[in-house]
């Protein structure tokens, strides 16, 4: 049995209360909207890329604490990173959330491993993944993604696999 209180740790609660990079960007080079129709969550992510590097990133939307904290910590983690490094992080976060990556193994996730407990809460995995999912879509010029569609680039990461 998981302990969800380990999920609602102070770092997550803090990012939920005071989300970093919360807001919008003027003239973003990439942006996407992510939906989780099962819970009504919605997240907009916009970023500026220059010389293959994420210079600025912002998000806003309506979501649960897990999703908002995940988005806040994600934006802090990928700011200044190259596209390739960001994609690695997206992959690792997804694998951690679905239990494929053991956070004890070498990885680039750093403090993001605070979300590792989500693997024990299958109905909440999508909450944590939605920002990453949306960032992936923005980087790949998909303007809108949903956690419940066939072309969902993260569908392979869903709890059903």
């Amino acid at each position: 049995m998981m302990n969800s209180k380990s999920l609602y740790q102070e770092v997550i609660l803090d990012h939920n209360r005071k989300p970093r990079n919360y807001g919008t960007l003027d003239n973003p080079s990439h942006h996407a909207t992510g939906h989780n129709p099962l819970c009504g969550d919605r997240l907009d992510i916009a970023l500026h890329m220059q010389d293959d590097q994420i210079n600025h990133i912002a998000f806003h939307g309506e979501s649960c604490a897990i999703c908002k904290a995940s988005a806040s910590m994600m934006t802090a983690a990928v700011k200044g990173k190259t596209r390739a490094d960001t994609e690695i992080l997206i992959q690792e976060f997804r694998d951690m959330a679905t239990g494929k990556l053991d956070p004890a193994q070498p990885n680039h996730l750093g403090r993001l491993t605070v979300f590792s407990g989500i693997r024990d809460l299958p109905t909440r995995v999508k909450c944590a993944i939605l920002p990453w999912h949306t960032l992936h879509a923005a980087l790949n010029a998909l303007t809108s993604v949903s956690t419940e569609t066939d072309d969902d680039p993260m569908q392979a990461a869903s709890v059903n696999d």
Binding site: S4, K5, Y8, C39, C64, A65, I66, T123, C127
Partner: peptide
């Protein structure tokens, strides 16, 4: 200020089963 899914997950920790969602 608290999303229903967070309520449901934390209540579950106390053994309490409620439904959250639409």
């Amino acid at each position: 200020g608290i999303h229903p899914h967070d309520i449901g997950t934390i209540l579950n920790e106390d053994g309490i089963a409620v439904r959250t969602g639409h």
